[in-house]
Design a protein around this nucleic acid. Sequence first.
DNA 1: TTGAAAGCGTTACCAT
DNA 2: ATGGTAACGCTTTCAA
Lengths: 332, 332
Amino acid sequence: MKKKPTMQDVAAIAGVSTATVSNVINNTKNVSEGTKRKILEVIESLDYIPNNLAKSLKMRDTKLIGLLISDIANPFFPPVVRGIEDSLAENGYNLILCETNSDSNLERENLRVLLSRRIEGLMVSLAGSEESHFENIDTPLVFFNRVPVSDQYNKVQVKNFKAAYVGTTHLIGHDYKRVAILAGPQHLNVGRDRLFGYKEALLESGREVDSNYISIREFTVAEGYQGMKELMNQDPKPDAVFTSNNALTLGAFQFLKDAGYRIPQDIAFLGYDDTQWATIVDPPISVVRYPMYEMGQAIGAMIIGLVRSRGQEPSRTIAFEPELVVRKSCGC
Amino acid sequence: MKKKPTMQDVAAIAGVSTATVSNVINNTKNVSEGTKRKILEVIESLDYIPNNLAKSLKMRDTKLIGLLISDIANPFFPPVVRGIEDSLAENGYNLILCETNSDSNLERENLRVLLSRRIEGLMVSLAGSEESHFENIDTPLVFFNRVPVSDQYNKVQVKNFKAAYVGTTHLIGHDYKRVAILAGPQHLNVGRDRLFGYKEALLESGREVDSNYISIREFTVAEGYQGMKELMNQDPKPDAVFTSNNALTLGAFQFLKDAGYRIPQDIAFLGYDDTQWATIVDPPISVVRYPMYEMGQAIGAMIIGLVRSRGQEPSRTIAFEPELVVRKSCGC
DNA sequence: TTGAAAGCGTTACCAT
DNA sequence: ATGGTAACGCTTTCAA
């Protein structure tokens, strides 16, 4: 790990000034063929790689974008991160990834670190319902997935209300009488909105909302399992269920299989997110899904746009439409 | 997006020098209570956040580690990235993520960018079999998953040979007569070693290696599907199969279900990697797995260690043991 | 206890 | 076409 060569070194050996070296590297001025070749040779022979820190300091830009999410191992994130990355790479930006483990304090700390690194933009899926630390940031900011309610922010969302509404309505269309829901935490907009969509669907079709068929749970597999179990302890049992998140879906499905229920004969099942395993289980499950990769691309494109426009634009929100994928678990 | 306050600004307003400000921020020298408080107040009121670029430039360190992988959407990566992140965060390092899409050229380009950002260490899962661009890097380097063969590098691996050996041996122990394998690309060590382990297991138990039961495939779901199909076209059909990668496993399973084969009655099935869906399919599948999160932690710890020791240490390789998880698909 | 100033590796303005 | 040099925002030595 010897000291890395600098532009000074290159200049000295090539017998020119750093200004000239800089100019050939960045193609920013005409340099005679001769000296250019000479400089390139020296760069090659020294294995010189420009120091971007110095450049960034001088230029006041870093080509660095931050990503703040709860946990990359949540199957929702990988495809969207992929979309984000592609979209950033296309524009010459790099991604710096921070995980919060859904802890708002960690989120705040990570935010500070990212800002001190002078990221040019930040994409965040909120850790919790606390969002005050984002208030006076003057770095371009886009929220996605778990977003704040305020309209002052840029967001890439999913139509949570509609997803649940569409799903529940589909189940009602099959004439199931007791449609249950495994809902998420009510302090998160994604939890609230989906439960709301479920209720609205019920109401609109003239049904009653029966709290016995509503199980409010954390978004984890274990909670999905437990929640489904409790739902099936109701008397009479629900004859259909909408699970409003991928982890809940997995847990609920697991319980129903373990307990020997037949799907959809004993209970119709409508899941959330089109995960890899949706098609290979028995029966293949119907789900409400979003185009995750495309959402990622949109998120990336939005942050790049904001960076380029220097945050002059009014805040926007893009909301993706849910899509109902019908397979065999809902009784179609 | 007004100009951000600098340490100069803080110093001027507080009526002290930048040296003193620096000292209170970093706790690097005694500063009298009075001036310290004063400075902290100014920092607070200005919303001053130190510029880490300048600091890094001066200090010659960035607290930045690079990660170069093919595709975060490959289900193998998220848990290991999580482990890596945790281990880096614990030590005050941030992660910069680059995807290569398994393209060696992109890998080389990304490598240059990362080096120009003066990352302190780099973790890579190779894009392909080309690795020459890593040769003269004097940045601490650890390979994982897809690693080069040369011993000159630090690696965190998996015992690929053993994984296939253990899996195949288990199948043989059930006395299946025609054990097939869905193997990976032979230009990758992970593909080669696993096929080799399969063959060795066969040979050691006195069986013959029959190339009709070996299907060499890219590591994708579609190839797994197609490969399994061709395997089942052999006459006689195989009565057991080991799928040597998670994507191949998914594709193969899918085909067998689609084609109506019963597992394990018609064909015993042993998969690779303990993915989320392994337990909820019918039957739950037996797999060979690795502790991915722990591997991630080990990778992170290794790179931190190298950074701290300034690459003085001889190169090491850590190899994780495969674990056989027996469920219902292998006929146990 | 505090401060002046050099230096980290670039870029870009202004000369030549 | 080329070069001298100030400046980017910080840390740290040396002096006061």
